[in-house]
Amino acid sequence: MTRSTQPRPVVVGIDGSEAARTAAAFAAGEARQRDTSLHLLHALSWPLAGIAARTEPDMDLRTMLRTGAETMLRGAAAEAADVLGAERVTWSVVEPDPVTALWEASDDAQLIVVGSRGVGGVAGLLVGSTTNGLVAHSSCPVVVLPDPTSAAVSPRSSVVVGLEGRPEDDVLLEFAYAEAAARGTDLVAVHAWQDVAPETAFQSMSPLVDWAGVLADEERVLAEALAGWRDKDPDVPVREAVLRERTARALVSVGLTAQLLVVGHRHRSPLTRLGSTTHGVLHRAGCPVAVVPIPTGGAR
């Protein structure tokens, strides 16, 4: 007998902020695109949490906060139901801090969506260093939406993916190709490189360096990373961009008008922090950024 399994849901961290409502709408679209359900998650991260750890919390206050959160979630769920249908939308209020709650949710989710700013809940924490904690250790890809005031672009097109010429590029390409196909748009593969002799300004400007040859080598790196992928999904148009620039800056620049910018993060240990490129992209990008976890050992 064949046992059917339900596809893993899209999970969105939500509080009462406008950024969280935007994140919920984006997540509903992602769930519809993936033909799966949506789960709205709110963590009771409230100002008296530190006091509650030392004294018995005021149960009336806790009840009031939970009631308010449930009311907010019902409203957000009703909006998402217009996109997905009520049977595909669930919500919950949890006690752990927002980052812990989302870590735990990522074990059973296919995608986590969070906003860039909030009023103190999940989205609000992402402005600071807590971004590292969430994205660095999530078991599934995390999409972080940009500050809506950072750039106004309409319409957006393309999925952009950053490639380094390493075996784990396949993990990013699998995700990016699927996103481009689902959105009916093209894929822009970006490979950035810097001067081969950056120790001094004189070396980097040396006429003895064959910069055309260096560029040709870097173009081959990108071509090799893409080898075979066009045959796997020939319906997705692919454009290649090789830039002599810092990686984060190159990705932010190319991704300014993109629907989605895809980067990777290597899981090395429980103490892993985000690399400088991923951190830089998350804090500067003007488009949604998907951070895809790369398991130890490279591609799956």
Rank of each mutant, 00 (worst) to 15 (best):
G280K: 09
V94D: 05
A105D: 04
R230E: 14
T2G: 00
E219Q: 15
R246A: 14
V254H: 05
A216R: 15
A285I: 06
W211K: 12
S92E: 15
R54K: 08
G29D: 13
A227D: 15
A81W: 12
V289G: 10
M59P: 02
P167N: 11
R54L: 14
R88C: 00
L172V: 08
A250D: 07
G120I: 07
R273D: 12
G165P: 07
S157Y: 05
V252Q: 04
E219F: 04
P148Q: 02
D195P: 08
P198V: 11
H42C: 10
L256C: 05
G286I: 05
T257A: 15
G124M: 00
D60W: 04
L251D: 07
V99N: 10
R32D: 14
P146V: 03
A152W: 13
P47Q: 10
Q259N: 10
V160M: 08
V93I: 00
A212G: 12
R266I: 06
H39G: 00
Q6A: 14
G133L: 04
G120C: 08
V161D: 03
A101W: 01
A123K: 00
R220G: 01
E240H: 07
A52K: 02
V83N: 02
V188M: 08
L48M: 09
A258Y: 06
G297M: 02
